[in-house]
Design a protein around this nucleic acid. Structure first.
Lengths: 341, 341
DNA sequence: GAGGATTTGAGGTACGTAAATCAGAATTTT
DNA sequence: AAAATTCTGATTTACGTACCTCAAATCCTC
């Protein structure tokens, strides 16, 4: 049925050992012989049985996940998914090491990357911070042959093999469309609430949001962005303040964490007069707010999908195999009260 | 590291052969011995290396996909995904047989199921039709030990192991919320366009749509549902007729196929006066219409995800393994112009 | 406790590939 | 042409599990 190395050897008129040398790029084969083998491989359509190969090699894939020690719901959820996938992956000889780094600390992230490189693992997934130190560490990493994948936050124009996360520009644009259309003819300004504009993702979301708003809803007033630092207390204070300053406040786009504070501020609005609100990341907090009607839509990235995608891609790279592209695209999930999972 | 059958044998104080008999449920082991082995398995946390086992068995998983010979874009897309996954699955010793049946033909589906049963495959995925003949055939199937999975359309309260598809009730509810909110204060009735109310999925979508509309937008007039039979020509005629009958037509919810005709009818509306429209399934047609602004939102089920999910579940059942539940939930994707993939 | 039946042990082969050794052949260098 | 070097073949072992055979041990029944 499916051709094996034995078939290749017979077809090419060489021995098993030679086939092995060619297939695994080992030295000691002259060019003409190598070509004979390669021709046989092509003719028979041989594909290595990865399972059997791994068995023979007793291969264990070792991947590292570098995750910021952030305590917001999203990161906690991501850790949970990682833990769940870990057990599942063990059945495929995949061992996943979790490495914590301080949040927003480019230096720590860079040295974590260097540490992984020293350990000779098969691949790394990490939440990127766009900083020269990180970029340099990443280049060193990929140059030593490690596959690297960014998760949640990307590092564009770098040597990472893949990005398992959403298009934040598109997310911002989507939020603007939804918010603009939900508002309809209702007057009043919109308040954008960021976590921190230091964070690339948040900047992109804001940019997408602004561009669609200017384009499609030019008459709508966009208040200056406030930064809540992903901190519920600060977010609550900022939103309450904005509500006091702008009694006609019609919409809120919250694209950082700390939504617990946002909800508290929203609950203070008189029934039926609260601003149309769109937030990011489906957590227990935003889910409850969605059901209660405090929030109108939640844009979400599926952390579980991101983790599994990162691992699939790392494994494919380690095997030199391809990936199902569509399967690895992380969608911008839009959740309304009606389509909650 | 990971315990092997040898470790189990040593731990239980029995021979390899006995361990093998226990693990594979072969006869010839007394209860006390069996228990010793099982205890050792539990203590050491032994999990069979499926890859090695399959290698030894030269096992090939054979699954059948029974797909209605429907020529709408969605089904064509599903076939495409199946074809793509087929090559990919071959690497995992999974062989997928595609079986065509006439669309909407319960009898044909039932006998296809019976045929699969006769062939002793490992599992079946099929697009269900709720009909006694189908239900009976399914029961026969699962009773002979085959795993069965429904795709796209479910068969509730049956012995299918899994349903790889969306919650159509929730989809209808989601559409109603979006449509209602997009319309805002704009007056005018809404036209629901079904494929056929004979189809369970369409009935469910309509039901969800109606319930939310009555609940949250009670003043909105819902026109009687029209059935386009998933046929572009008929859909176009029906929508054009409705537009003529109701010049104030404000919204359309199209939850069947044949959207090519819907788009044609929409293009006839004066610029800026066309009804807010929500359709199902992201195809080249609906994608173009979304970009052109003829359609306002598309609800989608990811056919590729459904196919892969069905296969993963079938394989897990065949191995007696578990599944990552969250990974197998098919989402209701909401696409706006801004978050198109 | 003899007879038969059942249970268990020991060992082997197989799956498809990796990786190693060693001998012999071919090629290149001197 | 001899020596050194490089290439190739033949063979073996291993990975973890399945499955087979044959013999030995244990059980049960009368």
């Amino acid at each position: 049925m499916k051709p094996t190395v034995h078939d290749i050897a017979a077809r090419a008129g060489v021995s098993l050992a030679t086939v092995d040398r060619v297939l695994n790029g080992r030295p000691g084969v002259r060019a003409p012989t190598r070509e004979k083998v390669e021709a046989a491989v092509a003719e028979l359509g041989f594909v290595r049985d990865v399972a059997a190969a791994n068995l023979a090699k007793s291969r264990v894939y070792t991947f590292a996940f570098i995750i910021p020690a952030n305590d917001n719901s999203f990161m906690i959820g991501l850790r949970g998914e990682l833990e769940a996938v870990r057990r599942w992956a063990a059945q495929d000889r995949i061992s996943i090491q979790l490495i914590d780094v301080p949040a927003f600390d480019a230096e720590a992230l860079a040295s974590a990357l260097d540490a992984v490189r020293a350990e000779q693992m098969d691949g790394v997934a990490f939440v990127a911070i766009d900083h020269p130190l990180v970029r340099e560490a990443l280049e060193r990493l990929t140059e030593s042959g490690l596959a690297a994948v960014t998760v949640v936050s990307d590092l564009m124009n770098s040597s990472r093999a893949h990005y398992a996360g959403i298009d934040n520009l598109a997310a911002g644009r989507t939020a603007a469309t939804l918010l603009g259309r939900f508002l309809g003819r209702r007057d009043g300004p919109i308040l954008p609430v960021a976590g921190s504009l230091q964070v690339q993702d948040h900047r992109e979301r804001l940019e997408g949001f602004q561009s669609v708003l200017q384009d499609q809803f030019p008459e709508r007033v966009l208040l200056p962005v406030v930064e809540g630092g992903d901190d519920p207390v600060r977010v609550e204070a900022l939103v309450s303040q904005a509500a006091a300053d702008h009694p006609e406040l019609a919409g809120i786009y919250s694209f950082g964490a700390g939504n617990r504070g946002l909800i508290r501020a929203l609950a203070a609005f008189p029934q039926g007069r609260h601003p149309v609100t769109i937030a990011h990341e489906l957590t227990s907090v935003t889910r409850a707010a969605l059901l209660a009607g405090h929030i109108d839509a939640v844009l979400n990235q599926d952390a579980g999908h991101e983790v599994r995608s990162a691992i699939r891609v790392l494994k494919a790279k380690a095997d030199g195999a391809g990936v199902v592209v569509a399967q690895e695209r992380i969608r911008i999930d839009i959740f309304l009260k009606e389509n909650l999972p």
